[in-house]
Write a protein that binds this DNA or RNA. Sequence first.
DNA 1: CGTATCAATTGACAAACGTCGATTGAACTG
DNA 2: CAGTTCAATCGACGTTTGTCAATTGATACG
Lengths: 120, 120
Amino acid sequence: MSSELKLMPKQKSPNGQPCCEPVVYPDVERTQAANMAKIAKALGDPIRLTLVDVLRKHAGKVCVCELVPLFDVSQSTLSHHLKKLRDVGILDSERRGLWAYYYVNPEELDELSAWLSGGS
Amino acid sequence: MSSELKLMPKQKSPNGQPCCEPVVYPDVERTQAANMAKIAKALGDPIRLTLVDVLRKHAGKVCVCELVPLFDVSQSTLSHHLKKLRDVGILDSERRGLWAYYYVNPEELDELSAWLSGGS
DNA sequence: CGTATCAATTGACAAACGTCGATTGAACTG
DNA sequence: CAGTTCAATCGACGTTTGTCAATTGATACG
């Protein structure tokens, strides 16, 4: 987990032909890249991606007790995945009595979404 | 790494109030979710995300020898990241003599991109 | 031929991950 | 109060990850 950037290739030419013409450089900032990678990583599990999908489509806040039976994993495992999504900011939660309700923070997906859509 | 889906919460009501009104269910198919999670996971590292960014912006095929000096990691580590991106189909490569050239398979990002953009 | 260069592979290692069962803590019920 | 229920946390486990140095394989040069 790092991504320090340098610049400029060396491009030795054995027979005179260069390996390539133009010099290449990154276009996203290091901090942008790190943030988007963090979001992508959180989405990089089928259960977590499905959780985000369910919560996004639902638009309201959804009780954990409704989410657990959707998956074939234990309650503690699902809680772990919810925590992971909350840790990176994709989800937020709210407690009401015994129950906990989760919902999506849509803005948190915007940067990655924009980048993926080809826009710089 | 699994994500088997069931259906229907149980929704016991201690005092008569249900924990929530509507029943929730996943909207993406299991195989879609698995595929998108695979792509997201591959993008879940700052170096790999930056590699995709560089190659996407560049539009032509880029020599590995130009990519290595952009990052503060060893040549073998970068090769490992490139392989990972190629394994999930985001990148393809082509050998010309001593050099190897990588380029983006843009369609491979479309499904995740569309999902992230709010479209089902 | 022997040497040099680029990129992929191997082997090692610590860190992070996904999963579970068991426990804990909080809040409601009777 | 004692008992129940929901969700979070803990402790353990096997697997995967990111990294490096060293090696290998392929190709080019003299």
